[in-house]
Design a protein around this nucleic acid. Structure first.
Length: 601
DNA sequence: TGACTCTGCGCG
DNA sequence: AAAGCGCGCAGAGTCA
């Protein structure tokens, strides 16, 4: 019979490296014994709980609690852990993971809700300790009951093997978060200064051009000055329902259009507004400043960032990242070269000389003596698409490992030039995202006839793809869910949304593949006792920090990532190395003749 | 003042 | 005749 330790912490905040534990509640099962310790001494607490290290530890988002207790990663690796938050996610990724909602959904009670109704959680420091104790032990009890309820459910759904895999992945994520990613704060401060000067310069140029000063960050004000004040025709909202007049653009499912009409794509594309590029550039600089300041505010006293990697944060099974989000860091300027037209030559030069400041990734650096090594998958989603759709021609291309879009173009249209390669690429995206014909037309800048011809050529060349897409929807209609290659379940009961299932199978399939790769690579690192850390995960990329003398392990790591045994074809990877995440250079060469990476030994 | 929504935009 | 997948975060606006 299994023995359990269920735990829950109350803390002063979310950041374990600078906040304090207010109290910890634990429950021992099967004894049913409860204990609560207010403001425990951290060292004492670590020792005390280890008396129960042979038990299975259960928590709702247990990684959070373990980080607050501050165990070294090797201790966490030695534990058996169960995260009820991930159990909920594997049961149905659409559900809210907050304990209040989880209690309601699976236990049918609202005890936590009523506790919170009486007290403000943000002021937990000022609660009576008796109250904290009662609240905390109630959370522990809910967690235990949710675990008991969901374990058999997950078994019935045949997803316990994914749950076990995820609990091992959680330990790797723990280690990534525990050590963190070194942030170059001095350089960040310099960049912010430069960007703020740039912003001032851009604002001045813009206000002069506009002939009026206002807060361009406000949609309301910008909309007024860009259209009414300028007497510039306001583009018609194409999402107004012609019959009812309802603004469908306000539908949260589709927020691309809005009544203010000041998004970049509308200003640039639809309105062709004279301020479009100026606004785009102002926003870009503003965004860069926001990014860097957010990062600077979250460093610990040694300038490390400890992002949270969440395995139950996405609909598809991808990992998400927060505080800070390390998966959307700017890599450089995008809109500048388009928008520089409104500036005088001097201003253009001034900003170009400072363009490095927009590369926020270069602020993520290796520790002294180490290098950043980034290994990412080439065209990962296209590969997964070929695998799940089982199209023989697509799979044949994937085997060779050369540029997939060019190969497709060659096969479909008999030649692979820039134009046909772009067609192939856009249709590939379209298939992965469920694009409509209208959108594809816009993307390719074609007439309806041309677009239809091109897509039908594509369908004819890959005969199983269209039937597969229909089949996915059919299966979802029939069962109410889809199952990934990994066994993970994706549920959807709205028929009109089931087309998203194809994307889920691809995006989520890639996510589960990456998690397998992470585990295998991590096992290799630990087994050989290597001084190599994973510092970031970005959907199709693993970022490492290692010494140059350990570069000899790169081919092995790259090979492990290719997981050739899983599908019979390798997921080809690309290796880059640099002093920071923003200054990477290719490492090794891929042999385009055979398509085999040199890393596949 | 805080909680919430809306909108826009960075990344894969 | 343009608007598809998955995130997290920030400022402005709104309301109590």
């Amino acid at each position: 019979m299994n023995r359990y330790l269920i735990l829950d912490l109350e803390t002063t905040g979310l950041d374990w490296w600078r906040e304090k534990i207010v109290g910890i509640g634990i429950r021992l099962e099967p004894e049913g014994r409860e204990e609560f310790f207010p403001y425990p001494d951290p060292g004492w607490l670590r020792e005390y709980l280890l008396e129960y290290r042979d038990r299975i530890w259960i928590g709702h988002n247990i990684k959070f609690d373990l980080l607050f207790i501050h165990y070294p990663p090797e201790v966490v690796y030695s534990l058996q852990i169960r995260d009820t938050m991930d159990m909920v996610h594997l049961y149905d990724s659409r559900l809210s993971k907050s304990l209040v909602e989880v209690e309601k959904e699976f236990l049918g009670s609202e005890t936590k809700f009523w506790h919170l109704h009486q007290e403000n959680k943000r002021k937990i420091k000022s609660w009576d300790l008796d109250k904290v104790k009662e609240y905390c032990l109630n959370d522990v009890l809910i967690t235990w009951n949710v675990f008991r309820k969901l374990e058999p459910e997950l078994e019935k759904l045949e997803v316990l093997h994914i749950f076990r895999k995820n609990m091992e992945l959680l330990k790797v994520l723990y280690e990534i978060e525990y050590f963190g990613f070194l942030f170059d704060k001095e350089e960040a401060d310099r960049s912010v200064k430069i960007l703020e000067e740039n912003l001032k310069l851009q604002e001045e140029q813009f206000f002069q051009k506009a002939g009026v000063r206002f807060n361009w960050r406000s949609h309301k004000q910008l909309s007024y000055y860009a259209y009414d004040y300028l007497n510039f025709p306001r583009p018609e909202n194409p999402f107004l329902d012609p019959v009812t007049g309802e603004d469908l653009g306000r539908n949260p499912e589709s927020r691309k259009y809005n009544s203010t009409m000041v998004s970049s794509s509308i200003l640039v594309g639809k309105a062709k507004h004279p301020w479009a590029l100026d606004i785009q550039f102002l926003r870009e600089t503003d965004k860069a400043i926001d990014f860097i300041q957010r990062l600077s505010s979250l460093t610990d006293d040694k300038n490390f960032l400890h992002s949270s990697f969440n395995i139950s944060g996405t609909r598809t099974g991808r990992i998400s990242s927060s505080r800070p989000n390390l998966q959307n860091i700017m890599s450089g300027m995008r809109g500048f070269f388009l928008s520089s037209s409104f500036m005088d030559a001097e201003a253009v030069e001034a900003i170009l000389n400072r363009s490095q400041a927009y590369n926020v990734r270069r602020l993520f650096i290796a520790r002294p003596g180490y290098k950043i090594v980034s290994i990412d998958y080439k065209q990962m989603e296209m590969r997964m698409f070929g695998i799940v759709s089982k199209d023989p021609h697509m799979l044949e291309f994937l085997q060779s490992g050369t540029d997939i879009h060019s190969q497709i173009a060659q096969r479909v249209w008999g030649k692979a030039d820039e134009i046909t390669r772009d067609w192939a690429k856009q249709i590939g995206f379209g298939l992965i995202y469920g694009m409509t014909m209208g959108s594809l037309r816009f993307r390719l800048n074609l007439t309806l006839e041309e677009a239809k011809k091109i897509t039908s050529d594509y369908w004819n060349t890959f005969p199983t793809i269209r039937p597969w897409l229909f089949g996915v929807v059919e299966e979802c209609k029939k069962r109410g869910y889809l199952r990934y290659w990994s066994g993970r379940i994706w549920r959807e009961d709205r028929v009109e949304k089931m087309y998203r299932g194809a994307n889920a199978l691809i995006q989520g399939g890639c996510a589960d593949l990456l998690s397998v790769a992470v585990l295998r690579v991590n096992n290799y690192i630990k087994r050989n006792n290597l001084d190599i850390r994973i510092v970031n995960l970005v959907h199709d990329e693993i970022v490492f920090e290692m010494r140059e003398e350990d570069f000899e392990h790169i081919p092995k790591i790259a090979n492990l990532m290719q997981v050739e045994d899983l599908f019979g074809i390798p997921f080809i990877v690309d290796v880059k190395i640099g002093r920071s995440h923003g200054e990477l250079e290719s490492y090794g060469k891929s042999d385009t003749g055979t398509g085999k990476q040199i890393f596949s030994q």
